[in-house]
């Protein structure tokens, strides 16, 4: 956010009418977007936590979640974030090809996350655990589903950047790598909240 305050008092000149003044506008935009997204997840998680307080019996339902796959997914997402940050650094250093490779790993890890999630869903459906089973499962599917859509959106953005970067053709989009990385970190942080609240608060505690 330092860059943002630096432009205070209009000590700069923007003569280029085509759009944002460098990355500053983009960075600010993504931060505001994230703050707005936080309120969405806060609304959902807040509702979930309130319900949870009144329904201690949900711990039993939570015990049906596959904690191993959940942990694997957490690792996948954390690692993918690491590579995305590396990709952003690589672009800053002017090495688009390297950045492309790192983004490819990021995308692969993100896809793996979705595949694992798909297996989890499939297993849950086969046990009759549909969103309509009870409100715990409603929250579970809504929260993870919404999070999954965010993952998907992030993956699309990273893939577009990868396609440009591998041909050394990022051009004006250079700044977007860091911005997408910022968004990707946000998606990861959301998962860091979802995972303990959904998986770990279970019958007999986290085992």
């Amino acid at each position: 956010m330092d860059n943002v305050t630096a432009v205070d008092h209009a000590e700069y000149e923007v003569e280029d009418y085509t759009g944002p003044a460098g990355t500053t506008a983009g960075r600010l935009g993504v931060w505001i977007l994230i703050s707005s997204e936080i309120t969405i997840f806060a609304g959902l998680l807040g509702s979930y936590i309130l319900f949870r307080l009144f329904h201690p019996e949900w711990a039993e339902e939570s015990a049906h979640l596959n904690i191993v796959l959940g942990t694997v997914n957490t690792m996948l997402l954390l690692t993918s974030n690491f590579f995305m940050m590396k990709a952003s650094t690589a672009v800053d250093q002017g090495d688009q090809k390297k950045s492309a490779k790192l983004m490819l790993i990021t995308v692969a890890l993100g896809l793996a996350f979705l595949v694992v999630k798909g297996f989890e869903y499939a297993a849950e459906f086969s046990h009759g655990e549909f969103p309509s089973k009870n409100t715990f499962w409603s929250f579970y599917f809504l929260l993870t589903g919404l999070h999954g859509t965010h993952i998907l959106g992030g993956l699309v953005a990273i893939t577009i950047l990868w396609a440009k970067a591998k041909n050394n053709a990022l051009g004006e989009l250079k700044g977007r790598v860091a911005l997408t990385g910022l968004y990707w970190s946000f998606v990861e942080v959301v998962w860091v909240f979802l995972f303990p609240l959904l998986y770990l608060l279970r019958e007999g505690g986290a085992k």
Binding site: I32, S35, S36, E37, I38, T39, I40, F41, A42, G43, L44, G46, S47, F130, P131, S132, N134, T135, W137, S138, F139, F141, L142, L146
Partner: peptide, 24 residues
Amino acid sequence: FLAVGPILAGAFMLLMDNVFGTGF
């Protein structure tokens, strides 16, 4: 944009109630 998050969350829940038969 500070206020809209919770209503969007609510809208998603309402959508699930209507479409998937959940009971938020």
